[in-house]
Nucleic acid binder design. Structure first.
Length: 475
RNA sequence: GGCCCCAUCGUCUAACGGUUAGGACACCACUCUUUCAAGGUGGUAACACGGGUUCGAUUCCCGUUGGGGCUACCA
């Protein structure tokens, strides 16, 4: 059997949506699993809304997720001649016809149908009834026309790889326009023409295309070409059960990149939107995901996007990665924050904050504060603690500073620091917690951090002592 | 309105006629502990409804209800 051929065909009219990315991912997974070919095709036939910038964002998004394509990107706009030729052929074979109705006329017809209220609007084929001579005459007079497909009134059904058999009746479908009056192709024609030309064998795309499928199948039949396998994957919805959109917050892949998600975590999470490997498998390395993937495992019902679970999964990937591998993205983020760590080795800092972080942003923010405690700001709980402790806060801070001053630079390690703090607390009759928390607050502005002795070690002796001996809640 | 798709915890899902309906996120306890996470342990929580088919339905069929998609010279 020749390798199967799949494609992802986004239109560059917006950013790469998580739904689109998920569709691309499924195509990619099946291609990799079967040794098939994954084609990328940019559907830029809508000149009004398509931009090169959007194309670039889509390419970048896919690359970021590690979704690689084998052919393309092809640009649909370059195949206008073929699209036109296909339309002309259907016209010549009597499978399509010229329609001279203006937009205004169509709008009036549509309005009437809607007022009738019993059925959907379908073009009444009045131009199909025109005689050959009449058509020739109108063309000769320079009247503009579109080419409409003559929808056969027969059953159009297919065995969808995720839904099973889906059936439409041709008479419920409209005679769709396939070529605009300016000679440019309409989506459904361009897709079929391209999928045929690119020898696509499997079309994996969103559920929202189910109603396009019978139109496209009719076109395949008219063009005399066997239809590919269709797999319509469920949509991704927002928390309110509605189609995911801007009002749900971040919907573009780039948004999640900006929020400090790891690409592999994002990809893993996306794979689980509408697909399950069966059993309890969730966090999977690439190889396993590819091996386990199958169209049978795809869900029929839409999935609600849950950012909380994404963050959890990101945290899992974060803690599994060695600090060294996190250093590059953390440095990038620090750069965005205007922090310049120089040549300093960030690995120890990353290690000490990793388990309390769910995103690269979390890590970077905490690393920045450890690099320079002056960067910290007091959170509400810290403020509360300061108020509650009163004068003891600064007193205990200075006591700790004095004790820690006795620990030399070469002894500045978590164990010795802890010993010094314990000894100091005991001899000064201060509870350990009351000794520790002020240090944590002074160094991070927060009541939450890694163990205080580790925090001190990571911040460094000089910076820490300076801060502890000068910090005052007032300013 | 018409056509089409869908329906298991709040969310992601497992189950492919017989299970105390399993796991994960979130949530709540407990544990660990110098705080918080992480980790560990435990808990709350679901088969939309009504008819069939069957010895037996979450599972198969039909209907109802509820959601969603499409209904352009957009893609």
């Amino acid at each position: 059997m020749p390798p199967i051929r799949l494609r992802f065909a986004p239109s560059p009219t917006g950013y790469l949506h998580v739904g689109g990315a998920r569709t691309a991912l499924f195509n990619w997974l099946l291609a990799r699993k079967t040794g098939g070919v994954f084609v990328l095709r940019i559907e830029d036939t809508d000149k009004e809304r398509s931009t090169d910038a959007h194309t670039q964002v889509i390419l970048d998004g896919l690359s970021w997720l590690g979704i690689t394509w084998d052919e393309g990107p092809y640009f649909q706009g370059q195949y206008g001649d073929r699209h036109r030729a296909d339309a002309e052929r259907l016209l010549a074979e009597g499978k399509a016809y010229r329609c001279f109705c203006t937009r205004e006329e169509l709008e009036a017809q549509r309005k009437q149908t809607v007022q009738g209220g019993v059925d959907a609007f379908r073009y009444d084929r009045r131009c199909h009834k025109l005689s050959k001579e009449e058509v020739a005459d109108r063309v000769a007079r320079g009247l503009t026309s579109v080419i409409r497909f003559l929808m056969p009134h027969e059953e159009i059904a297919w065995d969808d790889a995720v839904h099973g058999r889906i059936s439409f009746q041709g008479h419920d479908l409209d005679d769709l326009v396939i070529l605009r009056s300016d000679g440019s192709p309409i989506y459904n024609l361009a897709v079929v023409s391209d999928d045929i030309a690119m020898r696509i064998t499997h079309v994996i795309r969103g559920d929202d295309h189910i109603s396009n499928t019978p139109k496209q199948i009719a076109l395949y039949r008219a063009l005399g070409h066997p239809v590919p396998v269709f797999a319509h994957v469920p949509m991704i919805l927002g928390s309110d059960g509605k189609k995911l959109s801007k009002r749900h917050g971040a919907t573009a892949v780039g948004d999640y990149q900006d929020r400090g998600m790891l690409p592999l975590a994002m990809r893993n999470f996306l794979a689980l939107m509408g697909w399950s490997p069966g059993g309890d498998r969730e966090i999977m390395p690439e190889q396993e995901m590819i091996e386990l993937f199958s169209l049978e495992g795809i869900q029929k019902k839409p999935a609600v996007f849950d950012p909380a679970k994404l963050e959890w999964m990101n945290g899992q990937y974060l803690s599994a990665l060695p600090a060294a591998e996190l250093e590059a993205p953390v440095r990038r983020e620090l750069g965005r924050m205007g922090v310049e760590p120089g040549s300093r080795d960030l690995a120890p800092l990353i290690d000490s904050v990793k388990t309390r972080s769910r995103t690269i942003l979390d890590i970077a923010a905490q690393v920045a504060v450890r690099l320079d405690p002056a960067r910290s700001t007091l959170d509400p709980k810290a403020t509360q603690l300061i108020a509650k402790m009163g004068d003891d806060f600064v007193r205990n801070l200075r006591l700790a500073a004095t004790a820690l001053d006795q620990v030399s630079e070469s002894d500045w390690r978590p164990e010795t620091i802890l010993a010094a703090l314990k000894a100091s607390a005991e001899s000064n009759q201060v509870k350990l917690g009351d000794a520790m928390q002020p240090i944590r607050v002074a160094l991070t502005g927060s009541t939450v951090s890694e163990p205080v002795n580790e925090l001190l070690a990571v911040v460094g002796r000089q910076v820490a002592l300076q801060r502890l001996s000068t910090f005052s809640p007032g300013g």
